[in-house]
Design a protein around this nucleic acid. Sequence first.
DNA 1: CAACTGTACTATGTGACTTAGTACAGAAGG
DNA 2: CCTTCTGTACTAAGTCACATAGTACAGTTG
Lengths: 130, 130
Amino acid sequence: MDFNIDVASRTPIYRQLAEQIRAAIARGRLQANARLPSVRDMSRRLVINPNTVARVYTELERDGLLVTRHGMGVFVAPPGSDLTKKARRERLAVLLDGFFTEAVLLGFTADEVKELVQDRVTQFQWQAGA
Amino acid sequence: MDFNIDVASRTPIYRQLAEQIRAAIARGRLQANARLPSVRDMSRRLVINPNTVARVYTELERDGLLVTRHGMGVFVAPPGSDLTKKARRERLAVLLDGFFTEAVLLGFTADEVKELVQDRVTQFQWQAGA
DNA sequence: CAACTGTACTATGTGACTTAGTACAGAAGG
DNA sequence: CCTTCTGTACTAAGTCACATAGTACAGTTG
């Protein structure tokens, strides 16, 4: 896994790294139980502070995406959200509405958006259908 | 139009207001040429600083969503993005990938997402199909 | 002229973000 | 046991985004 940080960006470093890890897991480029670089190793690679890396790992563990074993390292957690079905659906609806808002303001038609959905949906590692 | 601000939220006030205006336009609750509350009026309603409101209006004008006429007020711009077709599509793809990432991490299946898309897509004011 | 509009500027305060440095506890291998 | 890795927990410092307050100026309307 290769991550990269743009220190010139207005989005915080810790947010950039967290998003890249989330994306890697969602696309299956980081599989369950895979080990991530240590806090110090990652900080050296990205030329950022170890504290910032630790902050990212802590946040992602709180979200249930990572599991840390003290003295051993940080690993990708097995899939599964601990939210209720209702909470999960509400959260997804908010995100989808945000996406639709931007799509409308960019001038797209509904058909164009549906087409793009079909194009891109295959690049992610979805839960198996019921 | 009624807007509301949560000062306790971690998301900045100017961002909250900007998102609410964007959403209102995308859903057709604010039509083209509609007039928005004046900077001072909006600041009194939301109990925030006039400078913060002005910042929001300026940002949305830069994005082409609003038009200000000095001394007269701020109005909703007619639809239409000034980005190139390629830039618009790339931007939408980034947003869609972000949405898919969260959907996967929340544990949804591809079919569930497609279903939600069908449910919600009708609530927005899309450009007329080609 | 009066009362509204948006805009520009300075000054101030708070908190997020990032870095640096030090220290401590758990795990693995010679 | 000792060394070296691992994550974690602090403190201290600096920078910058965010929000507020206040003042001032220019355009529009009646």
